[in-house]
Write a protein that binds this DNA or RNA. Structure first.
Lengths: 338, 338
DNA sequence: TTGTATGCGTTATCAG
DNA sequence: CTGATAACGCATACAA
């Protein structure tokens, strides 16, 4: 196809100089109507497209946005990346993608690679937050970047979900149904988001005047089914929970399996609330009540912030908090008083 | 960080010429032991990393693989891309990602973009197959590419799933349980994969001596819940199906909802088999019997094929067929004779 | 308004 | 074995 049609070819074909071609395509100013249209038509006919490397070499800018997520196979990140991709291509940028697997070395490796590829900006869910982030390669990097779902207030732009408010609502909902023993599987071990979930949970319990039972709060790993064992143990205890809140990754799958194996029925015997984007629980029966992540908005907002940052590199850093919505399914019921 | 340390800086620092530096880093041959180690140490100290654009401009090769899928938010493609990413970064390549949404124009746009970015190769699930593919921009493009899950035998390398064999097994399984009215929601409208699924279904029925009822075969769209209406209609008909096979996208979600709304119980009243990667049906209750796509192998194989192709551009094109495995869940039961 | 010439950082060729 | 230099394709400062 348009294998190697360069600005030279266009110039020759249009009977003008290469400078003029370039000016038509970029500067826009100071070109005669005639020359402009002549060039444009040739460009169109030949399907000319500026070589990214020549331009990148000259300008120092590619039209590439890098994106690093822990794991694209996780539907949460797949959805976020999908939203970012849409926003980015709309602006005629391309998306360079990498999985960090939450490992610092992989993240650094990807960062170096992205750097040498001259990405104009970066959207990332880093493996670290807080001081650890600042001291790491990411914190030192000068690439304009936006942080997704990690706490880095003040040092970078970030978009986050208001986990605390979301889980508080969920907890209140369960409490209003009479539940007093509510289990929480936070996910996000060691992360702000996990702590926020727990905080929201404790907020709700405090208002309700319930003393939280530490046994009921679990910090499962999102990539494993460890929650299965945890939930099984809880259900076999003398005071089993009557409701449970869990992140809709492997965590929730493990929880549901434990409930099933115990011969319990949702919502008759136990109420369940999921946390996550909506599509994940499509196959659940009954339909799960959900604290919904609006991952689409999350990705979109991250992109917008990044493009802002690209324009004005030295503004103050923003931190945007997205609300979480409680979507009622059929997995919650009033507590049966025995 | 190592913002702009060039080969010049390394050369100066090491007290050699830039040519020598380049030779140490690339050629490898004909450099004295001493010079080599000197250069290497400086490279290391300065954190030198060759500028991708200069190199791309010079060599015409980037270390970038492009990847175009219909929709990364679809868990099938998320998994495939995940596997590709792993394979590609292991070879020190980067992955440029694009969503085509199955639209020809978007696909062409992405292709042009990838082209101008000088991707070394492309892994793609195109929006078209067969003659349409050959005549399209993709068929004319000279970028080394591997096709995933689309029929393009002879003109490009491709990896596909043996849908026919998979669905045949599923159908046979249901038949062995006594089912004779089996509904099939193929997905992949107008695509080889859809036709193959139907063929496998018909293979099984033929062996069983059952005349297929065209009413029972539906070509749902994977991105919509249209299957819900279809399934509802089927269940309300005078001769409802006693079993159903459906792709584990929105299609299956719609089917399950229709079954639920009809007040039917799986597997007591109706048997269900899903088609897709395993993780999608994590939340299903009961656990679904599954014709499993090994998307991991699919992505891995695609990458391997592409790297082979990069090495020897003019070999004969390969077509690799991956088997599908029937994973038994608890969603199928013997037909209840009323 | 238009054309010409330079340099961006590499690699490869060629002369030493 | 090593150093100098051309060329990759583009954008732009400068000359016309």
């Amino acid at each position: 196809m348009n294998s190697k049609v360069s600005v030279r070819d266009v110039a020759r074909e249009a009977g003008v100089s290469i400078g003029s071609v370039s000016r038509v395509l970029n500067g826009g100013a100071n070109v005669s109507r005639d020359l402009r249209s002549r060039v444009l038509s040739v460009v169109d006919r030949l399907g000319y497209q500026a070589n990214v490397h020549a331009r990148g070499l000259r300008l120092g800018s590619t039209k590439i946005i890098g994106c690093i997520v822990p794991e694209i196979r996780n539907h949460i990140y797949a959805n976020i990346v999908g939203a970012i991709e849409a926003a980015v291509t709309r602006k005629h940028y391309m998306l360079l993608l990498g999985n960090s697997l939450g490992e610092v070395e992989r993240e650094q490796h990807l960062l170096r690679f992205f750097h040498s590829h001259g990405v104009d900006g970066l959207i990332i869910t880093p493996s670290s937050e807080g001081p650890e982030f600042i001291q790491g390669a990411l914190g030192k990097s000068r690439i304009p970047m936006v942080i997704v779902d990690r706490e880095v207030t003040g040092v970078r732009d970030s978009v986050m979900l208001d986990q605390r408010q979301g889980i508080r609502h969920a907890s209140e909902h369960l409490h209003s149904l009479g539940h007093r023993r509510i289990a929480l599987f936070t996910g996000g071990r060691g992360l702000w988001s996990g702590r926020e979930r727990q905080a929201g949970y404790e907020d709700a319990l405090a208002v309700a005047g319930i003393t939280p039972d530490p046994q009921l709060v679990r910090q499962a790993d999102s990539w494993s089914y460890s929650s299965y064992e945890d939930m099984r143990t809880l259900l076999q205890s003398t005071q089993p929970p009557t409701a449970v809140i869990g992140a809709s990754t492997h965590i929730l799958a493990g929880i549901l399996k434990a409930i099933r194996d115990a011969g319990l029925l949702i919502p008759r015997d136990i109420s369940v609330i999921a946390i996550g984007p909506g599509d994940a629980v499509d196959f659940a029966n009954p339909p799960l009540t959900l604290v919904r992540w609006d991952v689409d908005s999350l990705g979109k907002l991250a992109s917008e912030l990044l493009f802002e940052r690209l324009r004005t590199p030295h503004d103050n850093f923003q931190r945007r908090l997205l609300p979480m919505e409680l979507i009622l399914g059929q997995s919650c019921a009033p507590l049966r008083t025995p």
